[in-house]
Structure formats: C-alpha cells, structure tokens
Nucleic acid binder design. Structure first.
Lengths: 126, 126
DNA sequence: CTATCATTTAGACAGATATCGAACCACCCC
DNA sequence: GGGGTGGTTCGATATCTGTCTAAATGATAG
C-alpha cells in the first residue's frame, strides 16, 4: 500500500485542538441534513444574500421594502417572493407600520448557519 | 399570512455590542453575492451536506467513495455527481490511491462559509 | 487480459425555482 | 366613502436541478 503520505497537509492549522466545524465532527442524520439544507437553500441565492445583507446593514437594523426594490432589476413581486423565502426560513421578521412594511434580521437563525461551518476555535480573524 | 403577531422583542435593539455577522454589516456587492451564492448552493442539498459531514468525520479525516455509497439509496453516478459539485466548489479534495479514491474536506473553504454568518462575538448561544 | 472501482457522458423525466404581469389587499389622505 | 400608493398573492412560464438508466471510459490489481 505504501501510503504516499497523507495528502492532506492543507497548510492550514485548522485542525489543531478541538478540531473542525460541527459539520465535520460527526455525520449528520438524514433529518438534520434535510432541515439544514432547507435553511441553506434560503440563502443560496444572490438576490436573497444581498437582501439579507442590505436589511442587516441598514441603519436601525431594519429596512423598508421600498429601500430594497430599487436596487434590483427585478419587479416588486419577485422581491416579495424572495423576502417570503427568507421569512419562511426564519431568517428575517417583518412588520407593517403604517404604509410601509419593515424587515429585520433574526440573528439567532443566521448564527445557526454560521455555527455549522465555524470551527470551535477562532474563525477567520484574518 | 398576515403578520398579526408583533415581534416579541422590539426590533430596534437587536444589535447590541460589536454587532452582527459580516453578512449583516454591509451590503454585499453583486459579484460577491453571486460568488457566495454559488458556494452556498454547493452545500444547500441534503445529500451533499451528509457527504460533507461523513467525509469530515471519518477517521483519518478522509473517506473512500466506497464508504459513502452504501449509506445512500442512490446510484453511483449520482453520488459521483454530488462529489463533483463539492469538489468544484473547492470544499473537498480528492486523490486516487490504488484502487480507491479518497476525499477530504478543505477546511479553509468551509470556514469561509462559517465566517459569513458568524457574529464576531458569541455565536448563537441558544 | 480480465475483473473491479469510480467517473463520465448522454438522454430522459419529475419536481423545484425564478421570474413576470395582473389581480388583490391594506393603509393613508382628502 | 373614494382614490392613490405600497406590498403581497395568484397564475403562468421557462429554466434549473436531482435522479435514474445505460453505456463508455479510465485506472489499477491480480
């Protein structure tokens, strides 16, 4: 067999200590995988990713739909559809206040995504 | 679906402290969003999520294809397809050693996903 | 050379997804 | 109340995606 020395050695020291993100620590069950995949699908779209970041970074932590629509070359129904996907996934909340509808990020759900892929030690830190 | 229920917490003080994951700190550019969405799409599938976790949690940090196929009710070409998607996204590497082909996780790319959604401070906490 | 493991290709098909236009609903203002 | 504006929902369509079968290819061990 003469293993040609393990090919790993990614020159990253990520696997020192506690080792690895949760996704790499133990096999996901079928159910967990299905649920997480649904959550990930909600963010696996350029428009929704931008919507999420625009909402999150908007002054006050929330954004009116009217702030969002103009940025995209998409019709209002399409934006509405994407917002609904994010809301259904539990990533954002919404409320109508008078004429306008406001959206905000639900940090716990976003953090859930992060935790999946983030090593227990320090993340990027640059 | 009318948003009849008010959000439990006032949406305005959701951000206390250093605030937020990168995704919520500033609006993503169109290009960044497209690139990240492509990466996310690679993991936004139950089978690929399980493959990733099975590879990552396998003893030695790598898994032979033969270890993976039996777990799923899928044909070999389909598994091969999913592995290719993960490899193309840069999330896993592969090498043939003798008869078998081995796969391993590329931690840096996985961590990139995590960093997107992970707050600089504490993660979800529950 | 033959058998095995894995990938690739091609074609096919069902289901999901992104998008649009039009209809609809909720609210404010006169 | 009536009218206008902001958003959502509905219905239709075109594309994308996951999966299969079947067959071909490549690489390796015996």
């Amino acid at each position: 067999m003469t293993p040609t020395t393990l090919p790993l050695a990614p020159s990253k020291d990520v696997q020192a200590g506690p080792c690895c993100a949760p996704i790499a620590r133990e096999p996901l069950t079928e159910d967990d995988a299905a649920e997480l995949a649904a959550l990930l699908k909600a963010v696996a779209d350029p428009v929704r990713l931008r919507l999420l970041s625009m909402i999150g970074s908007h002054p006050g932590g929330e954004a009116c739909v009217c702030d969002l629509t103009d940025v995209f070359d998409l019709t209002a129904p399409t934006i509405s559809h994407h917002l609904k996907v994010l809301r259904t996934a539990g990533l954002i909340g919404s409320e109508r206040r008078g004429t306008w509808v406001y959206y905000w990020i639900i940090p716990a759900q976003v953090a859930r995504l992060g935790a999946l892929f983030t090593p227990l030690t320090e993340p990027t830190h640059a």
